[in-house]
Every structure is written in structure tokens, then in C-alpha cells.
Simulated scan of single mutants.
Amino acid sequence: MSAPVSTGVIPELFRGLFDDAAVFPPGNLPVAEAVPAHRVHRTAWYAEAVGPLLCGAGRLGELAAVPPTSGAVGGAQEAGATPLRVGLVLPGGSAELAPALAAAAPFELAGVELATRDAAEAVAELDRLLPPHVPAAVELPRELLRGDGLDAVLDVLVDSPYRAKFRTGGLVAEAFPDEDELAAFLTGCALRGLPYKCTAGLHNAVRHTDPETGFEHHGFLNVLLAARETDRAAAAAVLAERDGEVLAKAARSLTDRQVTVIRNSFTAFGTCSIAEPLGDLAALGLLSSPDPLPQEDR
């Protein structure tokens, strides 16, 4: 798969922001469909906004079985072809790390996301097994990040080369943190200079209530703007904003330095749709599309 060609149309604030989680809920796109769709994303005019294809360890065999097309490969590398960039998601903890790294050998490993209940143990295993050029993020259950638990985990990670990962949604209402809980995480990371990624529930730009489920969704634009805050109340206020025009105006007023600070903090999020976040940015006037936006990929 060829590297994305710079078109200059993706603002720095959104470059590499959308990791392709098409195979995960609620999208659940079959791997055989997700791979060619991802190849299209990575060669389209908006390619600079798109991160790697995220895949769980248990589905790497499916990924390797997707036949190569147009000089790109799904599995084993062909002569002259570039391997698929894959972000490895390991919900089963450190025990999955060694076998998953071996199974991911045919791909270009763009990163590892390791869920754990013990941050120090996860860091030690990543130090021991992860190739030095591969970045990683460590995710702990939200119940362990409340109260003093949050500071303890972030203090472990800030002394490591790894990012934090925070879950911002899911398939039940309880999977969505409120503004104050998310603000505690964001400002805790900001005060330490600790980068992080998010996952789940962020495919729309602006905070909203889903009309079908009633779930309260954070907006990724809210999170981007809150990422520069070190005051918890101020961050929570940004996360609570539901007026897209207010958020868009704030995004347009950011200086280059502020954009750098934000993206050094909030590095990416997993989204099962690439079309929706791009469409939201275009609707808010934050993205000009020289060609049609992608079709819905969920």
C-alpha cells in the first residue's frame, strides 16, 4: 500500500486523527470488506487524516487471508508491494502480546494498544517484547482511573515511552464517561505532558445525544479543543459544548503553536466510520473537499 500523498487539504489539526476501526462494533465491517475500503482511504485525497487499520489479535488470520489487489497486500508481502499498516488491539492483556507480535509479522505494525489492569506490568512487557520503533498505548478499565487511581496510572505511564488510552464510549450508556470524568483524564495527561488516544463513540465532531439510543456522545472536536486545557472545570466546559459553530470558530482561531500542543496530546482516536467525521468537518466549514467524500463505511 502506497503512502498517502500530501494534498495540502487536511488541516494539521486533523492529520492522522482517524484510526480506522471499521471491523469493531458498532460498525462490524467484515475484514474482507474493511481491507479494500481502507486501501481506498489511504490513497484518497483525505488520506492524511487516516491512521492505520485497527485489528484485534484474534482476527489477524482473516487479515492475512485477504488477497492482494492493485499492488497492495492484505497478508504476506509480494515483491514490490507495501504491507498493510496495522494497529494491533489487544484486549486480553500482556499474555496476548508475544503471539500477536509474531502473527503480525506480515504487516507493517503501526502500533499496539494493550488493555490491562496493571499499568506497571504492561509497561514492563512492552519494554521486553515491543520492537523499539513501534509505538504503544496502554488502556486501563475506567473504574481503575477514578480518584487516586488515575494519578497512579498516569504517573506510571509518564515515565514510559507509551501513550495512555481512554475509552470514550461503547454499546451501553455506562460505557460513556461524563464530561467531568473525561476532563479529569485529559487534564491529568496535559499536566504531565502525557500523550493519549481515545476510542469508541467519537465519530461525530460535536457533543450530542444519539436519537436512536439516547446515549450521550462526546464530540471529537470538543476533545481536541479540551486537550489544551490544564484546568478540569475548563476542560469539562469545552466537552459540554453542543454548538458546532462555537466549536468551529474556536478551532479556526487556534494558533499553530496551540495546534501542535493539542496534537502532541490527543494523537488519534479509533472510529468505525471514516466518512462521518470527514462529513462533519466539511459541514462545519473546517474541511474543503476537492472530491466527493467517501461513502458511508459502516
Rank of each mutant, 00 (worst) to 15 (best):
S6L: 06
P11N: 12
P11C: 10
G16V: 00
L17A: 01
D19T: 10
D19L: 06
A21F: 14
A22P: 09
P36S: 06
V40D: 06
W45Y: 09
L54E: 14
R59L: 00
L63C: 13
P68V: 01
A72I: 00
G75R: 13
P83Y: 02
G87N: 05
G93R: 01
P99H: 03
A110Q: 10
G111K: 07
A120Q: 10
A122F: 05
H133C: 09
P135V: 07
V138K: 02
E139V: 07
L140P: 03
L140C: 07
P141G: 07
P141D: 05
L144C: 03
L150I: 15
V153N: 06
D155P: 05
D155M: 02
V158Y: 04
D159E: 15
P161W: 09
P161M: 13
A164E: 00
K165Q: 11
K165G: 11
G169D: 12
L171S: 07
E179R: 10
A183R: 11
A183Q: 09
A184G: 15
A184F: 12
F185N: 13
A190T: 00
T199R: 04
N204A: 14
N204S: 14
V206M: 12
H208G: 02
H208S: 14
T209W: 08
D210I: 08
E216V: 04
H217A: 06
H218T: 03
L221E: 06
L224Q: 07
L224S: 08
L224F: 03
L225C: 02
A233E: 09
A235V: 08
A235E: 03
A235K: 05
L239Q: 08
D243I: 06
G244N: 08
L247A: 15
A251L: 11
R252F: 06
V259G: 03
F266A: 01
T267C: 01
G270R: 09
I274G: 02
I274L: 11
A275C: 03
A275T: 02
P277A: 00
P277T: 02
L278F: 07
G279E: 11
L281E: 04
A283C: 11
G285S: 11
G285M: 13
S289T: 03
P292V: 13
D297S: 05
R298A: 10
